[in-house]
Design a protein around this nucleic acid. Structure first.
Lengths: 198, 198
DNA sequence: ATGCGACTGGGACGTTTGTCCCACTTCGTC
DNA sequence: GACGAAGTGGGACAAACGTCCCAGTCGCAT
């Protein structure tokens, strides 16, 4: 086995952990399953991390940090705000369909974090990030459409996150594409009404 | 220990399991934790159930069967459809605030069911039930408000479930009541636009 | 009262879990 | 080339897990 500095091992283990959690769920993401995925020994794991919990915590933080939602509106003129918002949500939906297990993993990590008081800040940070990204896209969308949010953008973003979360959860259960598109449509509808479309 | 027929033990164990899952999460709901909550021995557990998995499966089915959402609109005349729908969602929100751990348990059970192919029908059935209940309420709401759904009620119900799910998930993370109310308002807004308010 | 099936308690089994130890090897530095 | 720090491998540990066995006890029908 190649000799790799501990810092790189941490990154490799986090990546392996994400794969295992996506594929088999958080409960099945044991230290042994993770090191097997990473192709290393248990000793290397505990040389790089103090404990499994520390790995999971870092997994959550990492995954939040690199979250680069594909919801950013395209730089297209001539579309209404509604069309832009709906297209953004539908783009997220395509992202979800392309890798459902990843979003499922995100949900599990959130629930895990919610279960222990000392980890709740992690979940909060995760959603804070989501909201910030959404707010950014919404600002851009309004600019492109020549509209103006009549409700604080942060609030609009918070509602958008709730809607996409619901879309995700329900679609993961019934995999009903048409229903998901109806949710996207209704969500875009509701959000657009928080803006002044001059 | 009192002698109790196996059928009653099953019910008692399911009830105890729900308490444990709500309080400590599904991962911590071990057979020992459950029998401790129910105040019985491990032998009684395996006399009533073949395995822990069987208990969890029955827990999911049971909990779905007794689901009696408090979202049913009040029998009040003179309210608009929008007001009725929003009031219904807010009533669900109060229900969520009253026992957040219960809803968190429901989410965990859903995710658990989604993880194994043979249990996915359970998750699907759970949501089927949600949708049916929501559809019922929506029908009644339209009747009370003298309105008519222009989209199949089932589809409206499906969207409603997505919205309340999103409301639940995001509120469980940030516990922001105002944001949840904004979600309720926006959701009611979007849903109402699927009806003809004569 | 007696027999039999239903139920219970305690203890045990084998696995799997997270964690750790220790002998060993490699690398960079003097 | 020696040396200490950094990294590795394999095996081991205790604890907790789901499950099971078995001797025993209760209740009910006869």
């Amino acid at each position: 086995m190649a000799r790799i500095p501990a810092s790189e091992r941490r990154a490799a283990l986090v990546a392996a952990a994400l794969i295992v959690v996506s594929r088999k769920g958080l409960a099945q993401a044991t230290t042994r399953a993770i090191v097997a995925e990473a192709g290393m020994s248990l000793a290397s794991f505990h040389y790089a991390f103090e404990s499994r919990d520390e790995l999971i915590d870092e997994l959550i933080s990492t995954v939040v940090a690199r979250e680069q939602q594909a919801v950013t509106p395209e730089e297209v003129e001539g579309l209404t705000l509604f069309e832009l918002v709906e297209a953004g949500i539908l783009r997220y939906f395509e992202h979800l369909k392309a890798d459902p297990e990843h979003e499922q993993a995100m949900l599990e990590l959130t629930q895990y974090a919610l279960r222990s008081p000392e980890r709740q800040p992690l979940a909060a940070a995760q959603y804070e990030k989501y909201i910030a990204l959404a707010a950014q896209s919404l600002e851009l969308g309004a600019e492109l459409a020549g509209a103006r949010w009549t409700v604080p953008v942060r609030r609009v973003a918070r509602v958008l996150i709730a809607f996409t979360d619901g879309l995700t959860l329900t679609w993961l259960v019934d995999r009903d594409d048409d229903a998901a598109r109806a949710v996207a449509h209704a969500a875009a509808d509701a959000l657009t009404r928080m803006a002044d479309t001059r």
